[in-house]
């Protein structure tokens, strides 16, 4: 059993309540090079889970993908105050495509 840290990456409205709960926050508006900052989080191997706000996920897609099939950290997309963009569900679908070799869900959702 090992102890890791948790981080959240997003806009200030999403980050603040997490920070209040003791989760480390990388605030997008205040970070100059967001990609680099997140990359550092991953490479430090100190983080077990990283929550990334959906609205900035595109800017980080490469980094997120690079960590996808490693045991740690687990990076998941979270909705912001303005509501869900459905990107989290897309991730599930993309993963299913990889697992099955083709899109087996069709038009279901």
């Amino acid at each position: 059993m090992e102890t890791y840290k948790t981080a959240v990456v997003g806009d200030i409205a999403t980050c603040l309540p997490f920070r209040a709960m003791g989760v480390e926050a990388v605030i997008a508006e205040e970070t100059e090079n967001l990609c680099e900052a997140v990359d550092r989080l991953i490479k430090s191997r100190e983080y077990g889970a990283i929550f990334v706000a959906e609205n900035i996920a595109e800017r980080l897609s490469e980094i997120i993908e690079s960590a996808l099939y490693k045991p740690l950290p687990s990076i998941i997309l979270i909705p912001t105050v303005t509501g869900s963009l459905g990107k989290g569900r897309n991730v599930i679908r993309e993963t299913m495509k990889r697992a099955a070799g083709r899109d087996i869900m069709g038009e279901e959702d």
Binding site: M1, T3, M21, G22, G48, A49
Partner: peptide, 11 residues
């Protein structure tokens, strides 16, 4: 923050 949020990970 007044709390430390720690994540214990078991494999």
């Amino acid at each position: 923050p007044g709390v430390q949020f720690r994540l214990s990970v078991e494999t």
